[in-house]
Amino acid sequence: MTRSVWIKADDSVGGWETRKRRITTAIEAGADWVLVDEADVSRVRELGDINVAAFRSDADLVDSVETETARADAYLVGKDGEGDGTVELPNDFSGSADLSTLRRSDNRAQGAYIRIFDEDYEAFAEEAAYDAEHTIVIGEDWSIIPLENLIARIGDETDLIAGVTTAEEARTAFETLELGADGVLLDTDNPDEIRATVEARAASEREDLSLQYATVTAVDSTGMADRVCVDTASLMDHDEGMLVGSLGRGLFFVHAETAESPYVASRPFRVNAGAVHAYARTPEGGTVYLSELQSGDEVQLVDTRGNTREAVVGRVKIEKRPMFRVQAEVETDDGVDRIETLLQNAETIKVATRDGRKAVTDLEVGDELLVYYEAVARHFGEAVEESIIEK
């Protein structure tokens, strides 16, 4: 699931300068959407590149001319109407409605904005969701309308966006029922909360990998090969690196060059990853050949505990260097499997062992290396269930 962060910036939050600060922070923090009134769409376009959702109202219907810059990416209804309680729900409402109740005569709206005051509004949100691409629900009392109900009932029917006021509430929304809301609408003027909510979104989508140790069975000099350094656009911590290997089922943890040495300054944005043929893991759980990486691609970073995050590749350097072949055996459910990779013969390339960080040049048979192992075959980087022999 790809989750999203929406920032509320319509006229209910204040004047234009207040709204502008929210929008600017949202763009700088990497939020996905801003929700504004239709009159502000062109203003948002001038501030930066972000998806714009706009409230439609009866007053907007008189405007017949719509320029490209004034066109929103999505239109929502519900503000100043039945959705937010400004207009009461119909007396004959019995849990049967659709988005047309909120649209009135405007057929452009693709989404609904509904505040949940009681069970009738919960039912109203459920019915509107069947006709809405985006359904934003603002819980006025979550003891009456738990988010679990909406996720369970309409989570597959619409892009369900939960209203929140803090990053902590956003984390809860992303984790509810283990599935979580598809997104959150954050209502705050606090820039730190906006940034923290975007980070909470990113963290909710990341993998937690189960790493294990493999025992080194051989370290052999293989001569020269084309070696790949992956320079990312992110600084890595001391315990972070990448998973790389010659075999798709077994990837070795290789540290980023965060350590100082007598030979070269630390480069905490770099992983000296191996030869051009080797696999590297991507944020989606696939693999890519090191030779295929280029500026702008994404790779998966991992720490020694298996926590992951994504990083953008800034540059890839391929040079001829002397290499080692590192071979290891890993315990599996079916016995013992042998995996291997090629790493540069240099003191600055470090791997994670049971005894701590160790240079490749100091590796010995019997050392235990941190690896990621999954008993699957891969086809064009994707895990497949078929018989493939790698050796």
Score class of each variant (00 low, 15 high):
residue 116 I to M: 07
residue 132 A to L: 08
residue 118 D to L: 08
residue 142 W to C: 05
residue 125 A to Y: 09
residue 143 S to D: 09
residue 109 A to Y: 15
residue 151 I to N: 02
residue 124 F to W: 06
residue 157 E to W: 03
residue 152 A to Q: 15
residue 129 A to R: 12
residue 123 A to M: 11
residue 147 L to H: 06
residue 157 E to L: 00
residue 146 P to K: 08
residue 128 A to T: 13
residue 132 A to Y: 06
residue 157 E to P: 01
residue 118 D to S: 09
residue 140 E to T: 04
residue 119 E to T: 08
residue 125 A to N: 09
residue 137 V to G: 04
residue 144 I to M: 05
residue 125 A to S: 05
residue 133 E to R: 04
residue 142 W to V: 05
residue 149 N to I: 04
residue 145 I to L: 15
residue 113 Y to M: 11
residue 116 I to T: 05
residue 128 A to M: 06
residue 108 R to G: 12
residue 155 G to H: 10
residue 138 I to P: 00
residue 126 E to L: 04
residue 116 I to A: 03
residue 116 I to V: 11
residue 152 A to P: 10
residue 133 E to M: 03
residue 119 E to M: 14
residue 135 T to K: 00
residue 107 N to R: 15
residue 125 A to M: 10
residue 134 H to M: 07
residue 106 D to V: 03
residue 151 I to K: 02
residue 152 A to F: 15
residue 155 G to A: 06
residue 132 A to T: 10
residue 126 E to V: 01
residue 138 I to Q: 02
residue 119 E to W: 13
residue 135 T to Y: 02
residue 113 Y to E: 01
residue 119 E to Y: 11
residue 127 E to I: 02
residue 128 A to V: 09
residue 139 G to K: 09
residue 137 V to N: 01
residue 143 S to F: 04
residue 143 S to N: 07
residue 111 G to P: 14
residue 133 E to L: 01
residue 120 D to Q: 07
residue 136 I to W: 08
residue 134 H to R: 09
residue 150 L to H: 03
residue 141 D to H: 05
residue 114 I to M: 12
residue 137 V to C: 15
residue 109 A to G: 12
residue 158 T to W: 01
residue 151 I to R: 01
residue 147 L to D: 01
residue 137 V to D: 07
residue 128 A to D: 10
residue 112 A to F: 07
residue 138 I to Y: 03
residue 118 D to W: 14
residue 138 I to A: 10
residue 153 R to K: 10
residue 149 N to E: 08
residue 145 I to E: 14
residue 118 D to A: 12
residue 154 I to S: 00
residue 145 I to Q: 14
residue 107 N to G: 13
residue 139 G to P: 10
residue 109 A to I: 08
residue 119 E to F: 12
residue 141 D to W: 03
residue 137 V to K: 06
residue 147 L to Y: 08
residue 152 A to T: 12
residue 157 E to N: 06
residue 106 D to G: 09
residue 154 I to Y: 03
residue 122 E to S: 01
residue 106 D to M: 11
residue 117 F to N: 06
residue 105 S to N: 09
residue 122 E to Y: 15
residue 114 I to W: 14
residue 108 R to V: 10
residue 110 Q to V: 12
residue 121 Y to D: 11
residue 147 L to V: 01
residue 143 S to R: 04
residue 141 D to F: 04
residue 147 L to I: 04
residue 120 D to G: 13
residue 108 R to C: 07
residue 125 A to I: 10
residue 105 S to L: 14
residue 129 A to L: 13
residue 153 R to P: 05
residue 149 N to G: 09
residue 115 R to N: 10
residue 156 D to Q: 13
residue 110 Q to N: 07
residue 158 T to Q: 00
residue 106 D to N: 14
residue 158 T to L: 01
residue 156 D to A: 15
residue 138 I to L: 03
residue 117 F to R: 00
residue 116 I to F: 02
residue 151 I to P: 00
residue 116 I to S: 03
residue 158 T to V: 04
residue 145 I to S: 15
residue 130 Y to S: 11
residue 111 G to H: 14
